[in-house]
Measured scan of single mutants.
Amino acid sequence: QVALSRTQVCGILREELFQGDAFHQSDTHIFIIMGASGDLAKKKIYPTIWWLFRDGLLPENTFIVGYARSRLTVADIRKQSEPFFKATPEEKLKLEDFFARNSYVAGQYDDAASYQRLNSHMNALHLGSQANRLFYLALPPTVYEAVTKNIHESCMSQIGWNRIIVEKPFGRDLQSSDRLSNHISSLFREDQIYRIDHYLGKEMVQNLMVLRFANRIFGPIWNRDNIACVILTFKEPFGTEGRGGYFDEFGIIRDVMQNHLLQMLCLVAMEKPASTNSDDVRDEKVKVLKCISEVQANNVVLGQYVGNPDGEGEATKGYLDDPTVPRGSTTATFAAVVLYVENERWDGVPFILRCGKALNERKAEVRLQFHDVAGDIFHQQCKRNELVIRVQPNEAVYTKMMTKKPGMFFNPEESELDLTYGNRYKNVKLPDAYERLILDVFCGSQMHFVRSDELREAWRIFTPLLHQIELEKPKPIPYIYGSRGPTEADELMKRVGFQYEGTYKWVNPHKL
């Protein structure tokens, strides 16, 4: 086992960053958080920038500027975001240094004079007029057009580079997404736009490419001749908990499936790229999406959770019991969808996408189930092999396979070949997804960000279904809070070829 401390991990990262040409360590950078008073800024962006600063992973002359409508001070920003920093008493001095680099400007999102004030403020910072500028839009999409237009007109660096990070949702359907994309691309070049999907920053999602293309053993079996089906799962054990009003506007397909799960599907299904260059990788992902037809209604199961009468606390409440959810809402909190990649490698292999709230566990994984062994000599005792990439929690890679049961006879039983990170790298604290992705933006690497043509294809696949749901308002199937979801989803999976045995229990190697 390799035991690495946080300091050692960050030392390795620093070495990698400083050796590259793309990370300008000594240049002045300004990180501007648009929507600095909001939840995302408070819980994710400010803490992430602090962790990067604490670990010495930001360029040395980096300033952080918050911008929002609320009249706040840096002290206010500190008060609301610091509880999420997880700072230790030993880091007190470092924390003071961090907040000394912070400033805040209040202004409207659609007022040109406010942006001119913001620009004057940035120019007044040390070497601010020639600094590289990175704008993070932690804002609702309704203000994107006004904000990007004003940034472009008043706040661009004339000497350094300018980059803009856009948070999902990128529209509600193909038409609104196209409108937003066309607007942003009329102001910024594609190499300046970073559409963030934080799932692409997760260690195991990034590991998929290495697993596939750096190991000879997987190449020959990664196709329709050997793989019976692919299941991509995202499960949350909690409901909307008072935030249903926002969720109800989008629903589970827009929230998770059309982005996170579809991105994971691309990494499983794509061909080997010409290189690890950002556009070479994204070219292959677009090719996969172009091979997927629009979702067919007979390959869809929609569910909505109801309270568990035997549960406790939140578990007793259904989705419609959330006071922020519109009365009688038919918005799905669970969806199972089957897609097919219609190309030579994957023809006929079902890709089953499942996601839901208020389920029995927290889990995100990719599961490849292989065909049955031909010419069975073990009297149907063999179960199908599976390769599982567990994204969260407890990152893991393992192969479910058959071995001989101890004893006199040739009785096979299920076991696993474990390729888990935790076994080799004991207690290594890896940077989280937002840390990686923000560092990628500083480096100018777009590999783990969504390109406009990729986004367009993703919406093309799901828009007809979303429009049909909005028009017909089908009643989702009720499922109990804390269950596996509607049984109809299991029946759909069985119908397209997935075999669920229920006889195997994964042993978490992190707890051995």
Rank of each mutant, 00 (worst) to 15 (best):
N259R: 02
M401S: 04
P474C: 13
V373R: 05
G307V: 05
E435F: 03
R424A: 05
N360P: 06
V281N: 04
P478W: 08
V337Y: 06
E395Q: 09
I389Y: 06
T463W: 02
G303A: 09
V325S: 07
N343G: 07
K383Y: 14
P406V: 08
Q296M: 13
P406N: 06
D255H: 03
Y481N: 12
S278W: 07
I352A: 01
V338H: 08
N277I: 09
V366E: 01
V295D: 08
A274N: 14
Y479H: 00
Y504L: 04
H379D: 13
L265C: 09
T463R: 00
T324I: 07
K505L: 12
V288E: 01
F378N: 05
M257E: 05
V295L: 14
Q304R: 08
A364D: 04
R327T: 15
V441P: 07
M408W: 05
T316E: 13
P486N: 03
P393C: 07
L353K: 01
A336Q: 15
M447H: 02
L353F: 08
T403S: 14
K357V: 01
A433G: 05
D321I: 04
R495L: 10
V397W: 07
L417T: 07
E284R: 07
R451H: 04
H448Q: 08
T276G: 12
H260Y: 01
H467D: 11
R362L: 09
E435T: 10
T463G: 05
R495E: 12
P350L: 00
G485C: 05
S452C: 09
H371D: 08
G485I: 00
V295F: 08
E365D: 09
H260M: 03
V366Q: 01
G485N: 02
E342I: 10
T463D: 14
M408C: 05
R384Q: 08
R282V: 02
N277A: 11
V388C: 11
P273V: 00
T399F: 08
F498G: 07
A489N: 06
Y305M: 03
V388A: 09
Y305W: 06
D432K: 09
N385E: 00
Q380G: 14
C443F: 11
F351W: 06
P323M: 15
A269D: 05
G375A: 11
H467Q: 11
K400E: 04
M447S: 03
E488N: 09
I253Q: 05
E312A: 12
Y425A: 06
Y305A: 05
Y319E: 03
D280C: 11
E470Q: 12
E386W: 04
M270N: 02
M257W: 00
C291P: 04
D280H: 12
D440N: 09
L471Q: 14
N299G: 10
N411K: 08
A274D: 11
R327S: 13
E312T: 12
Y305I: 00
D280Q: 11
E413M: 10
M493V: 15
A332Y: 04
A335H: 00
P326S: 06
D255T: 01
K473V: 10
V268W: 04
N299M: 11
F351C: 04
G307E: 09
T316M: 13
A335N: 03
L466E: 04
Q369N: 05
W506H: 05
N277Q: 13
G328M: 12
C443I: 11
L466I: 11
I352P: 00
G422D: 15
P486Q: 03
L417P: 00
L430H: 08
R484S: 03
N427D: 11
F370C: 06
Y479R: 04
P350G: 01
V428F: 12
K494L: 12
Y425D: 06
V281M: 10
N411I: 15
T487C: 12
D372A: 08
T324Y: 08
V450I: 06
K404Q: 02
C382H: 13
S329K: 04
D321E: 12
G407S: 00
T403E: 05
K285V: 03
T399V: 10
N259L: 00
G502D: 15
N298M: 13
E271D: 09
A315H: 10
F370A: 00
G502R: 08
A364G: 11
I438P: 01
V337E: 07
K494M: 15
N277L: 13
V300E: 05
V450A: 09
N299Y: 09
I477Q: 14
P412M: 09
R451K: 03
I477A: 11
Y500K: 06
A458G: 11
V373P: 11
Y481D: 02
M264H: 02
T324D: 07
K272Q: 09
Y434M: 01
K426N: 14
P309T: 11
D490M: 10
H448N: 12
L471W: 12
S278C: 09
N394H: 09
W346I: 02
E414W: 10
G482W: 05
M401G: 00
A458D: 01
L417G: 04
F370Q: 00
A297C: 14
G497W: 04
S275H: 04
L265H: 01
E386T: 04
T487D: 14
K429T: 15
A433R: 01
A364Y: 00
R362P: 08
S483V: 05
H371S: 11
A269F: 04
A269Q: 00
V256R: 04
R484N: 01
I292V: 12
Y421Q: 01
Q263I: 03
A458C: 08
N308R: 14
M447C: 07
L261M: 10
K473H: 14
L471T: 14
A489L: 06
K405S: 13
V450F: 04
R424P: 04
G313M: 12
A297S: 14
V281T: 08
G375K: 09
A332E: 14
I438C: 07
L387Q: 01
I438T: 07
D322P: 02
K287L: 07
F334G: 00
A297Q: 14
R484Q: 01
A396T: 10
K363Q: 03
M447T: 14
P412C: 10
P323N: 14
R451T: 04
D322V: 05
E488D: 14
G502I: 06
L339K: 02
L359K: 00
V286Q: 08
I469V: 13
E386V: 03
L359H: 06
M264R: 04
Q304E: 00
Q392K: 03
P476E: 04
H260S: 03
L262I: 14
A358Q: 03
N423H: 12
V428A: 14
I292W: 00
D255S: 03
D255L: 04
F449R: 03
V300Y: 12
T276K: 12
T503K: 14
Y479N: 01
